[in-house]
Amino acid sequence: MAAGGDHGSPDSYRSPLASRYASPEMCFVFSDRYKFRTWRQLWLWLAEAEQTLGLPITDEQIQEMKSNLENIDFKMAAEEEKRLRHDVMAHVHTFGHCCPKAAGIIHLGATSCYVGDNTDLIILRNALDLLLPKLARVISRLADFAKERASLPTLGFTHFQPAQLTTVGKRCCLWIQDLCMDLQNLKRVRDDLRFRGVKGTTGTQASFLQLFEGDDHKVEQLDKMVTEKAGFKRAFIITGQTYTRKVDIEVLSVLASLGASVHKICTDIRLLANLKEMEEPFEKQQIGSSAMPYKRNPMRSERCCSLARHLMTLVMDPLQTASVQWFERTLDDSANRRICLAEAFLTADTILNTLQNISEGLVVYPKVIERRIRQELPFMATENIIMAMVKAGGSRQDCHEKIRVLSQQAASVVKQEGGDNDLIERIQVDAYFSPIHSQLDHLLDPSSFTGRASQQVQRFLEEEVYPLLKPYESVMKVKAELCL
């Protein structure tokens, strides 16, 4: 049975990233139509530049190519590739079939990587351009969430054990800070992308030097003109047959890092959902379990974690691919890159769409948070109580021993009897502590235990987050809708 299948058929496997999760716009960027249309555009740009620099290419040939950029006979191309065992030459023939007058000058002087690699770089750039505003929107939604809850005390956790208090907004800023680093890295790697350009079979530009009869300047002009037509500021000066596969490492490393950030955020949300302090959106008709109707599973956060793990592992592909590119190139890269580049971007696209949807509907339960604080705060307040007693004339050592005994009794009630923490009640009825009984409410005010959390939130948002989001103001209103 021949390899390949009808990918629109229910009898043929289709990647869930495309069929179930990723956005239509990201799927289109990695589609065959987008790819092969870009090949034709690159052939047109090459012909236009070659004509401008004096090669015998007519206006009629150029116009014929322009008129057929979208006229792609995919069936013919597939048949040609089956016959020739070469995808680029299959599309040269297919393009030439609908451009008979231009057929002889299509791909003039070029090698397969002229269309293959340059198209990949265009796709990487455009895919990054799709991700950047999506990530900015996630940051914006979380920034709104953090600002609104900047002063809401909550129990902090280290080692997932109760620690000092923080605020809900401050905790959210930990998430935002990681995503801001990801946004900066995505922008950097996007701006650092260079075009492969017009380089020939081993990167020496020998074929173009021959076409222009040894004119170095025209060869350099050709490279520059096509690079500018493709919208790049610069091209690699040095290439082998391909652009260095280190570029793929750079791009997928940034995406993998984004995956790590999203995994951490969504894990926190899942843990908070278990504590009943916070939940992701839950639709009115949504079913959490087929057997347990009360369940409210954090399905979206779980999906993000599941896909983020996949995204983090994909960076190993370009690392290994770059390491086995012998001399000017081997074909070890080809099949692998067809999979890992598309999957990385479709996965990143999915987790950003999902995280935006989550961040637009996060639900906080202040009463649950308050109750958990009441359970733990008495123990945390013991040092403040000791200091207040010393100020009232008591002995630190005597007070410490009193607190120690009462704390152990209260802990026994919590752990052995399943009761509430009654340390404060014990202190309130103990005559030894009568000098500070009137101060206990103040000493137990949760806001006095959150330090500068709310001020940190305000400063972080104003100095770091809002300036970073400013270039994306025009796209901030787009909502994230999930079908599944």
Rank of each mutant, 00 (worst) to 15 (best):
G5F: 08
G8C: 13
G8A: 12
P10D: 14
S12K: 15
S15I: 12
E25A: 04
C27L: 10
V29G: 03
W39K: 05
Q41P: 13
L44I: 10
W45T: 08
E48N: 10
E50D: 09
Q51N: 14
Q51W: 09
Q61E: 06
Q61V: 04
I62W: 09
K66D: 01
N68A: 13
N71I: 08
I72M: 04
I72W: 13
M76N: 11
M89Y: 11
K101A: 02
I105C: 00
I105P: 15
Y114C: 05
D117R: 04
I122C: 05
I123L: 04
L131Q: 05
P133G: 02
K134Q: 15
A136R: 13
A136G: 10
A136I: 05
R141F: 08
L142E: 15
D144H: 07
R149W: 08
R149I: 01
P153T: 06
F160R: 06
T167C: 06
K170F: 00
C172T: 10
L183I: 12
N185D: 09
V189H: 01
F195P: 12
T201G: 09
G203M: 04
G203W: 05
L209A: 02
L211G: 00
R234W: 00
T242G: 10
A256T: 13
L275I: 04
M278L: 03
G288S: 13
S290N: 08
P293D: 06
R300M: 00
S301T: 02
C305Q: 01
M312Q: 01
T313Q: 05
T321Q: 05
Q325R: 02
E328I: 07
L331E: 06
A335G: 06
A335N: 08
D349Q: 01
L352W: 05
N353K: 11
Q356L: 08
N357D: 13
L362T: 15
K367P: 09
I369F: 05
M387R: 07
A388H: 00
V390I: 14
G393N: 12
S395W: 01
C399L: 07
Q409P: 11
S412Y: 15
V413S: 13
K415L: 10
Q416K: 08
D420R: 12
I424V: 08
E425K: 13
D441C: 00
L443R: 02
R452N: 06
R452K: 08
Q455E: 12
R459E: 12
F460D: 14
K477V: 10
L482F: 15
